[in-house]
Design a protein around this nucleic acid. Sequence first.
DNA 1: TTGAGGGTAAACAATC
DNA 2: CGATTGTTTACCCTCA
Length: 373
Amino acid sequence: MESDTHTLPPLPTSLLYPTTLYQSPPFSSLLQTSSTVHVSLPLSPLSIPPCPTWLSPTAPVSIHLKTESLSPLLDSLSPPQFLDGQNLHCLNSPTTSDQDDLTCLNWLHQRGNLLPLQPLPKTTPLPQLEPQDPIPTQNHLSSPSKPPYSFSSLIFMAIEYSPDKRLPVKGIYDWILNSFPYYRAAPGGWRNSVRHNLSLSKSFCRIHRDKNQSVGKGSLWCVCPEYRSALLEVLRKTQYYHSTNSNLLNNPALLEGADYGESMVCDTVAISALTSDNPPLSSNPPCPLTPDHEELVNMEAVEYEEEVGEEMEKDPLSDSGYIEFHYYQYHQYQYLVLPGDTELDLETVEILQLDAEAQEAAGSLLDLAGGGH
DNA sequence: TTGAGGGTAAACAATC
DNA sequence: CGATTGTTTACCCTCA
């Protein structure tokens, strides 16, 4: 196992949109009041559309970093690309009830034009199912591969990403086309499959349009609340499998956590309620793994000023001063994405490969995350 | 071997 | 009238 450090091409900023801030105050506030901040910079697999954290299978790795070196990074995450105020509001504010709901998918809408995905350099190595496989990103300019998602999952995502949580068939088509260019060149049979799924699956229900407002043909389709969690679980499994190739999902304890009333493992996720009769958690659940991730990297002692607001009391990491990055697996190696040296600059981001010991620790943590085998 | 789940194709009716 | 939408049936494949 190698333990050297690899310096990779600049990390696409599209990979660095924040997904979870654990009720942290907005960046501006953080920069003004706190010596350290706690952010999460997910690295979602390129094969999937920008995903909310509830889809993220990877446990976060926490790193201590000083804020003075953090400013360039935060600056680079400035709006409008993905850190607009609304998004931060969505991610942060415990007072925004609708944002807490449904695992806060609204951040995607607020990001506006992030779908389709921004093109990403092919040179960026990211975790994929098999090392020999081409990266199944939909951002490849040529011959995008078929997404691993079932049509049910595609429909589910399309509907969930829609502002009103309901879409006409045409809207579902459009979302799939925009999100997965594979289907632009694919034979038209997939549309039939979409309709077939809508009709056949109990997970989706049809809403007859108000004839007074009827524009276009057909009805609106939405996700039946009682099947929502199941769809989410399928989606999570799909992404999990195709992103980490981990056997975590084989762990019953992990699946037991899929009641969505509580956190599953610690994938940086606040898995809030998924059904209307299952109210969302008022705050993001604790992230029991994160402190342990200190074992993965050498931590730098930092000072932390307790000026981040009352809502931070709910934040399990609020007093940690952590800055949080995802680590992921690629070619059986586990990687940690963190800024290089003292300057946090996206142009010089390095991806450090964990040494064997760290990988072992990470594996232990993953086992722990799965509730043991 | 079997059943479930999923993908695809096709036919058909209803609707716009 | 053509395109779109929605339903249904059938067949195939994969996987547990």
